[in-house]
């Protein structure tokens, strides 16, 4: 192989890596440049006192606080729904399901993981329309519908990370407790789950990040541009990613646009924190890249 050919390939390869890296850093730098200046407490809380706002003593009408609070509430609700079901299903996959059943269940989880989030949003929307027509005439797209839909969205991550964390425990560890008279369930609860906890936790943290960033699901299931901090599960709510989307198409003046940049920075920071945490908890963060949004 001639020298220039090898050299070209190497240069191309370095160029690809460098180009992509600079694009990403350029994006982040651009957001910092445009957004950092306008980032302030006033931007978040408008004219309401910080303590009053956080304790929900006063309604914050402007500012980013309602969107930030909405995102946090939404994440807590969806992850609260998805974690128990997902972890239990993951345990079933790793410790009980065998053969054809395991294959079939895995196939469904793969589909669930790959269905576009807008389709899951559409599912949430039609669920609320259906319930509205049949059992609950007062039900409209709302916080609870979004939380349910997002729970469906992140279920496969939690299931798979639980399953893989359990399956990677070596046989020599698996037999310790049974040799001491443990039942299968005791072995799972006392030895295997604690041993797999970092992997399971890593999956949960990634699910949190997914819930915080998703826009397509919530725009169909109840997110609105202005609602204040929502006080009920059955009302519309504000959320950061939807706010960013809304600003990008509907901003009226430079001040609103600046809010959009600031909101992007805050969302980026929130996701970076969760991503970093899961990075530390488990090196297997790469599974997200493969399973991801």
């Amino acid at each position: 192989m001639t020298g220039w050919f090898s050299k070209t390939i190497r240069i191309f390869s370095w160029a690809c890596g460098m180009a992509f890296t600079s694009i990403i850093f350029f994006f982040i730098g651009y957001l910092l440049y445009r957004g950092a200046g306008s980032l302030s407490l006033k931007l978040i809380f408008e004219n309401t006192g910080v303590i009053d706002a956080v304790l929900l003593r006063k309604q914050v009408l402007g500012g980013l606080f309602p969107a930030i609070a909405g995102t946090i509430i939404l994440v807590l609700l969806s992850v609260g729904i998805a974690v128990p079901i997902g972890v239990a299903a993951g345990i079933h996959m790793a410790e009980y399901a065998r053969g054809r059943w395991k294959e079939a269940l895995g196939f469904f989880f793969d589909i669930l993981a790959s269905v576009p989030s807008i389709v899951i949003g559409l599912f949430g929307l039609s669920l609320s329309v259906y319930l509205h027509r049949t059992f609950f005439p007062k039900l409209y797209p709302s916080l609870i519908i979004s939380a349910l839909s997002l729970a469906v969205l992140v279920l496969p991550y939690i299931i798979r990370s639980t399953q893989y964390a359990l399956e990677s425990i070596p046989e020599s560890t698996r037999i310790i407790a049974p040799a001491l008279g443990a039942s299968r369930l005791q072995n799972i609860l006392y030895v295997l789950i604690p041993r797999a906890s970092s992997g399971i936790l890593g999956g949960i943290v990634l699910a949190v990040g997914r819930c915080a960033e998703d826009t397509a699901v919530i725009m169909l299931t109840g997110a609105v541009a202005f609602a204040g901090v929502s006080r009920s599960l059955f009302s519309g709510y504000e959320a950061l990613p939807f706010y960013i989307y809304y600003i990008s198409s509907q901003y009226a003046d430079p001040a609103e646009l600046a809010e959009g940049y600031a909101a992007s920075l805050i969302l980026l920071a929130i996701c970076a924190v969760f991503f970093g945490v899961s990075f530390i908890i488990q090196k297997g963060v790469e599974s997200r890249a493969l399973y991801g949004p």
Binding site: I175, I176, A177, P178, A179, L180, G181, A182, V191, P194
Partner: peptide
């Protein structure tokens, strides 16, 4: 039940395997 059996028949493995 095998759990009863294993409580009456103890086992020690090649490499020490204390739990964390």
């Amino acid at each position: 039940p095998e759990t009863t059996l294993r409580r009456k028949v103890g086992m020690v493995f090649q490499a020490p395997n204390p739990l964390p």
